[in-house]
């Protein structure tokens, strides 16, 4: 899987590409419009992450070019502007997602994964982690082959964990993933806790192992026990 990050803020581009590399993607960065333009002509990418405001050009233009060259490439816009018009325009010219800065790397990662899944397999692929099996098209979860009934939020939570295995997820990023940006953080952190508790319980009931670990009160990590 090849991912291109077009972002002029060097530190941020570095963080994103480090994160992506750890997830097993081949990640390249471009800091300017010209550089990005060159790269999309030379190479094919599965996913391109584009910042809208670049020092020498506009991200929209880049997306338009990209879509003409290879329509199957997934596009995620990252922008400092939280404007509805930008989001609509982005979708119109063929981008798949829009994230407003500042965002969580884990959220970006989850979106990239979901995007690639949708693009490459039309969503007809199962996500597996040891004894856990998730079917995204039917939104069904199996543990040791047994159907496990979990709530909508618990499903979203599980999928978020499965997209970020062995990564510490902050409580805030989980809350915002589940309820969006406008959630009030004090209440949502309690709610995150109770959802995690329930999810854990349901997975354990079907004979699964406990994969969720709390990390210094910052957040949670899903991975090998």
């Amino acid at each position: 899987m090849k991912v291109l990050v077009v972002e002029d803020e060097k530190g941020l581009a570095e963080s994103i590409s480090d994160y992506m590399n750890k997830e097993g993607y081949i990640c390249e960065t471009a800091a300017t419009f010209r550089e990005a333009d060159e790269r999309i002509y030379l190479y094919d990418y599965d996913c391109v992450i584009v910042d809208l405001t670049l020092p020498d050009g506009n991200g929209f233009q880049l997306i338009e070019t990209l879509k003409k060259l290879l329509a199957t490439t997934g596009v995620i816009i990252i922008s400092a502007r939280n404007a509805l018009e930008d989001k609509i325009r982005g979708l119109e010219i063929g981008s798949d997602d829009y994230l407003t800065k500042p965002f969580h790397l884990s959220e970006l990662n989850a979106r990239v994964k979901s995007l690639i899944r949708r693009r490459n397999f039309g969503g007809h692929t199962e996500i597996r982690f040891r004894e856990i099996r998730v079917n995204p098209s039917s939104r069904k979860v199996y543990v040791n082959g047994q159907l496990t009934v979990i709530s909508r939020k618990e499903y979203d939570l599980l999928l978020y964990f499965l997209s970020n295995i062995d990564v510490v997820l902050t409580k805030v990023s989980i809350a915002e993933h589940l309820w969006g940006d406008n959630i009030d953080s004090a209440d949502s952190l309690d709610m995150v806790y109770s959802h995690i508790k329930n999810l854990r319980r349901k997975l354990l009931e079907k004979g699964g192992s406990d994969y969720v670990r709390s990390v210094y009160g910052i957040g949670y990590k899903f991975g090998e026990p």
Partner: peptide, 17 residues
């Protein structure tokens, strides 16, 4: 201001790993 904030967030997320 949003961009440096995004940078802080990203670095913190990396740090906690």
């Amino acid at each position: 201001i949003q961009t440096p904030l995004a940078l802080i967030n990203a670095k913190v997320e990396q740090l906690i790993q």
